[in-house]
Amino acid sequence: MRAAAKAKAKNPKGSRKKGAARKRAAPAVSLAAPLAEAAWAEADAALAQALVEADEARSAKDEGARAAALDMLLLSLARAARRRGMTRIGEIGARESYDAKRHNLIDSGARAPKTVRVAARGVSRAGQVLAKPRVVRARKARVA
């Protein structure tokens, strides 16, 4: 059994201080690793599909075939990410107040912008930001 095997492997031998032993014993009862394995089992097929579609996109003979392969690549990647518990941050095209901590500004300029537009969404998992949303300077809305 997977968990039992892992628990055994991590079980320290010999006598050690009780407090230290308790700390080391914690991963053996934690379900985080087998749960992660289960989530990966769900995500694997989608990730494999994405890799195949990446090849299709690269070797496509025309724009139509490339667009279809890219579509399938994106959908497969999105499924793999969801099954690993990832969520997207922001909405493409949304205007937001610029915050250097939350945004990855991809254009250059002397001054930090006040408002930015989301060019590519970010990704988070379990409350941790894995990739910040990529943003560009928002142009001022034209007054009619």
């Binding site: 379900l31 985080a32 690793a33 992660a36 989530a39 769900e42 409350g127």
Partner: peptide, 13 residues
């Protein structure tokens, strides 16, 4: 289900 104890692995399943 997003508790740190699960390191983000319970929520997806």
């Amino acid at each position: 289900a997003h508790d740190r104890a699960f390191e983000g692995n319970l929520a997806p399943v």
